[in-house]
Design a binder for these strands. Structure first.
Lengths: 213, 213
DNA sequence: TAGATTGTTAATCGATTAACAATC
DNA sequence: TAGATTGTTAATCGATTAACAATC
């Protein structure tokens, strides 16, 4: 890959392209123009072409884009052509729900372990995998070369855990804890702040009621 | 409220301000300048002042901002000074996890009901509330004047449900289904596309490995 | 009053959209 | 070849940052 830096705005749109192209592919659509895709997705054709061209030319003048090829290419860009192992830290409701979510597996994200500090939960099975104690975490991460840690624990626990995760070779943290994590360069954090999302919804409902938008 | 339109970029930052201000307040901090807050939050002081000034002047020259006052004002802007009732549609792992999440309640989001089409789940208790059948949904929404529907069902179910929700007076949809919903004007949708988020993380890990950023 | 810091205007930067030449 | 549609440059728009006058 070349050294050009892609903006997070573009990256953020790739999964949506991927989803629409996957559906087109499943429906047997072979080719699509940026114009057609633009109508389907409700974005400008210009943006679609600009976005794709960040990664090189995937289309052909006069023809458009081959759906399956474009789908596969975007998948590769997103790193979905390789296996990503992950563990879940926090075996509460949310951690368990994520462990049971099968769709991640389809995209190459493999659920390898789940941990909790609560002795009452240890040994419980989540999709056939036993909840392990936090003491076992560092060894497990190193031995199994885990790439991603999913944090579904309260914020204080999450803050105290980052250093350990980084030391044990974790490359990415999917953070559901309601706190900003400070990680060294080279480690990626993707936040899912559910209550922030709910507050945005609340704002938009309230401002709508106030007669705006 | 005046008729000025606030960009979603600004709205998206408000919950984070709210969180930091809440922590400062809890720590007994009385006042803070945009400069201090900027160092804490790792954003520019300029952006902080611009963001706040979208809603009018909350500060005072030579003094800064009163933490508690600012915290309360942002809470009001986000609509957290009123009660928002919600129901969860889909009593699977994720729906159950969200129903059990107590922190939403603290912000005024009140869990009022949970529904599923699977007869095996009906009657199960989630935080003391029984799972109801989908047949009961329209009546329940109308009778209880529910504001928000949380969709934790597969995409086909979600698509088929939107019209009903809108007819029954739902004002906002918190959508965890992996599909774009088409709603009439006046109804708000906030998407939480978990697999999109995970793909973004995957991209950033992969591009990091390729020596970028 | 002098110092501090906001509120706000102006400048810059980046992202989106439009336009069109290249080319299949 | 003519028509269609990309790839890409140029124009526009919006968001962020800088600067500074207003004012506590």
């Amino acid at each position: 890959m070349l050294g050009k830096e892609i903006s997070q705005a573009v990256i953020g749109r790739l999964p949506r392209y991927f989803r629409y192209l996957g559906e087109l592919k499943d429906n047997g659509v072979e080719r699509i123009s940026s114009q057609e895709l633009s109508e389907l997705m409700q974005v400008t054709a210009s943006q679609i072409r600009q976005d794709f061209n960040n990664f090189g030319g995937f289309g052909q003048q006069g023809y458009g884009y081959n759906v399956e090829y474009l789908y596969n290419e975007i998948g590769k860009i997103l790193g979905l052509d390789t296996i990503h192992s992950f563990v879940i830290i926090g075996a509460g409701n949310l951690g368990t729900a994520l462990g049971n979510y099968l769709n991640f597996e389809r995209r190459g994200f493999v659920f390898r372990g789940i941990f909790d500090q609560n002795p009452a939960l240890i040994g419980n099975l989540v999709r056939g995998i036993p909840v392990r104690s936090m003491e076992e975490l560092p060894g497990f991460l190193r031995e199994n070369e885990i790439e991603i840690a999913v944090l579904t624990i309260p914020k204080t626990g999450a803050l105290g855990l980052v250093d350990t995760l980084v030391e044990c070779g974790i490359k990415g943290i999917w953070n559901f804890a309601h706190v900003d994590l400070d990680v060294p360069e080279g480690v990626q954090v993707e936040n899912v702040h559910l209550s922030d999302s709910l507050m945005k919804l609340s704002y938009n409902i309230s401002s709508q009621n106030a007669g705006k938008e």
